[in-house]
């Protein structure tokens, strides 16, 4: 993939470094993200993912279901 980008980027002086840098940045960023996500505290994740369900709507929901 790197070669593929480089081939076209070469036609302009110095421009080939930009896509390389950005791909490297993205790669590092992505690896860091994966590492972080893997390390996340499971209980906390579970708690966070329930935020949308945790509100005062039970009342309305029961009302709708009973109808």
């Amino acid at each position: 993939m790197f070669k593929f980008v480089k081939q076209y980027a070469e036609s302009i002086d110095g421009v080939n470094i930009y896509p390389m840098i950005s791909l490297v940045i993205f790669f590092l960023f992505f690896v860091a993200l994966l590492y972080y996500v893997k390390k996340m505290d499971k209980a906390k994740v579970k708690e966070i993912s329930r935020i949308p369900l945790d509100d005062n709507e039970q009342l309305t929901d029961t009302l709708i279901q009973n109808n």
């Binding site: 960023f29 992505f30 993200l33 994966l34 972080y36 996500v37 893997k38 996340m40 994740v45 579970k46 966070i48 993912s49 329930r50 949308p52 369900l53």
Partner: peptide, 15 residues
Amino acid sequence: RPVFSYKLSIIHFWS
């Protein structure tokens, strides 16, 4: 029910 994987949603968002 909660989203399938909250961890996946983090990766989804940033990438």
